[in-house]
């Protein structure tokens, strides 16, 4: 029985169960999905992926790739100012000490965050 759109009641063995959004993605069915700030991160990745494939498709085989880490770090960089984040910078000596380029990528591909 529909209580209101995307909220349905079923009665099983005399007990009621309330199903939201017919079992589909509840946050998009019953609310408005994720907030814009976090989706901006996702969609910046989408845009970079489209750019990369459009411009450099010759470099790719018919395989599944992830975006290189420097682009991942760029997506994060683009979002820092909005929430007032300040970044420290590595000195040359520090960069050498941990064996990464001074301006990134700062982690190996195996790093899991």
């Amino acid at each position: 029985m529909e209580i209101k759109p995307q909220v349905d009641k079923y009665t099983i063995d005399g007990k009621d169960v309330i199903i939201l959004a017919e079992g589909r993605l509840v946050n998009l069915g019953c609310a408005t999905g994720h907030p814009s700030f976090v989706m901006s991160n996702s969609f910046t990745n989408q845009t970079l992926a489209q750019l990369e494939l459009w411009q450099n498709h010759g470099n790719y085989e018919n395989k599944v790739y992830v975006l290189p880490k420097h682009l991942d770090e760029m997506v994060a960089s683009l979002h820092l100012a909005k929430i007032g984040v300040e970044l420290e910078e590595l000195t040359d000596a520090q960069a050498k000490y941990i064996g990464v380029p001074k301006n990134g990528p700062f982690k190996s591909d195996a790093y899991r965050y």
Partner: peptide, 20 residues
Amino acid sequence: PAINVNDSVTKSKFDNKYGC
């Protein structure tokens, strides 16, 4: 060729986690 956007760190560790 396919690019898996989901496994960008700035996607799955943010949208999937902080979004939800």
